[in-house]
Structures are given as C-alpha cells and as structure tokens.
Design a protein around this nucleic acid. Structure first.
Lengths: 142, 142
DNA sequence: GTGCTTATCGCAAGGTGTCGCAATAGTGTG
DNA sequence: CACACTATTGCGACACCTTGCGATAAGCAC
C-alpha cells in the first residue's frame, strides 16, 4: 500500500522509511495545522522510540517534496499541514490569541505589487498576520 | 541624567534599574535591528554578571512602555529596535537570506482592507514577508 | 539474496527563548 | 532616613527546534 507515494518519494532521491510513513500518516489524520511536537506525541503513543529530530527532518523532507507546508503563527510556533489543503492566510490576535483564516485572494494585490515593483515573489501565507482582532478592539480603549 | 525616561518608566508602574538602563543604552547605540543575544554580548563586555533572561524580560518591559518593538525575520530570530525608528516592512528571501526594507505605505492598502472587511487592526511590520527575491528568481528556473 | 552506497535514524549537545523561585533592590511613605 | 511593598534579578530548568556524528537500513546492481 502507499506505493504511489513511495514512488514519488524515491523519485525525489529520498527513501521511504517507517518513520517517514508515520509522519505522513499523522499529517493525513490531522485536519488542520499541527505543531511538530503534537506529531511527535501522537506517533510516540504507539512508537515510543521515534526521536523528535527525526520528525522535524521528515517534515522538512516532505516539504521539499511538496507534500507539506508550514506556517508561522504568532511569534514562535510553527504549524504544519498537508500541501494539498486549501491555501489561505491567517490573522492572529496578539491580545487574545484568536485565529481566523483569510481568503488568499485578499492578499493577492499586495503580492502583485511586490512582484511588479520589487521583483519579489512573496509567499504571504507563510506567516500569520499579527494584530488586534475586532472583539479585542471593542473591549479595550481605542 | 535620563530623568525623563526614568519618570516615564515609573509612570508605567515599573522601576528603573541598572540593567534596564543598560539595555536601553545598548538599543540607543544600535543603529538597526539587533538580536537579544547581541545585546547580551555587548552588555556583558562591561557587565559580565547580567543574565540573558534579564535582557529578554527588559526588552519585553520596554516594549510594553512603547520604547522598543520587535520584528520576526525568517523563521526563528527575533530582532529588536527602538520604537521611534522609521517604521517599515521587511522582505526576506528564503533562498539567499537577503533582506530589504519596504516603505510602510506599500502595506497600507492591505491593512485598510483588513480593517474595513474584518475589523482587524493588522501590524504588517511585525513579521517579515518571506519569498524569493529578484536575484534568486533570475538564477533558478521559473 | 548478497553486497554497496548513502539517506536516514537516534542520541547528545547547542541555540534561542521562557518560566518558577528565592534573594535583591527600587520607590513611596511616615 | 528607615520601612514596607513588590518589581526585578540571577539561577536553574524547561521548551522547541537544529545540528553533528556514528550506527542503521533503504534501494539498487548483481
């Protein structure tokens, strides 16, 4: 089973290992963004010998192959998800920590502008946009 | 000396300590973005007893008071600078790591859109925009 | 299936912050 | 100026991720 993926992994000059398959499986199970750490925990439930660094390296390898992507949320936490998921931006409130998704085309005008004016091909979904959400704006002054 | 700042620090319910003053001074000396670590190193040259956690906590405290701001560059490193410095965005190339600054008003249309459509007050200078720079675009295919 | 090459693994250590805690030291008050 | 209050410090430990390295095991050729 999973022969198609095995093929594609090998085509990329990589190998299909037990650990790689476990990471892939964990990502498939996870609906949305997951932290590397949560993947480690989940896999360890059944395979206690897996090392965190292995998971990190696999996420990276799978990203190179185009299977997964990562997004930087507020400040430090990186979250991973399958690359075939709907592409979208993120808004994170620095006050309450709430998150909301954003249609990618809202970011398109800026992307175009950066491309045209600076020749820079921006990946605007890569980092969440930080700010103050509507609810928090209403509560606090201003 | 420094009485005005002392006042303002105290007005914020905080205290002016030797360490706080050293951090403030280091930021004043630094032209642009500096990492917390470089501040630690710099201060330690003359005051070897200062602890990194103290510097981190002071940066945070000074940020609350509006004296400094931090920006997230590519991936992990946080950089700090004085709040009165010219506000601007950042482009970081994920291939070659080069950085360039961006006039803040280029980001304004998106900020307005987020404010109007989502009631979200975005801080678009808080995270660098990641992508592929012009030079790298020309070298690699596509 | 044997053997070879080398991608990948597990482990230990490092980098960048963060946190809990007991000791210290700014600050306002009497 | 001594005192009480509590913000702040330094230290040790932890969190999250990265890196170097020797051991292991995919994947290919025979």
């Amino acid at each position: 089973m999973g022969t198609e993926i095995d093929e594609r992994v090998r085509a990329g000059g990589k190998r299909m290992t037990v650990q790689r398959r476990l990471v892939l499986e964990a990502l498939r199970r996870a609906r949305h963004h997951v932290t590397a750490d949560s993947i480690v925990t989940r896999i360890r439930a059944r395979h206690p010998q897996i090392d965190p660094s292995t998971v990190y390296r696999n996420l990276e390898a799978l990203e190179e192959l185009g299977y997964v992507t990562h997004t930087h949320f507020d400040d430090r936490v990186t979250r991973w998800h399958r690359a075939d998921a709907q592409r979208h931006g993120h808004l994170v409130c620095r006050r309450c920590g709430s998150e909301q998704e954003l249609p990618i085309d809202l970011l398109e005008p800026l992307a175009r502008r950066l491309r045209d004016d600076h020749g820079f091909r921006a990946d605007l979904a890569h980092s969440a946009i930080v700010g103050i959400c509507k609810a928090c704006s209403n509560v606090s002054s201003m």
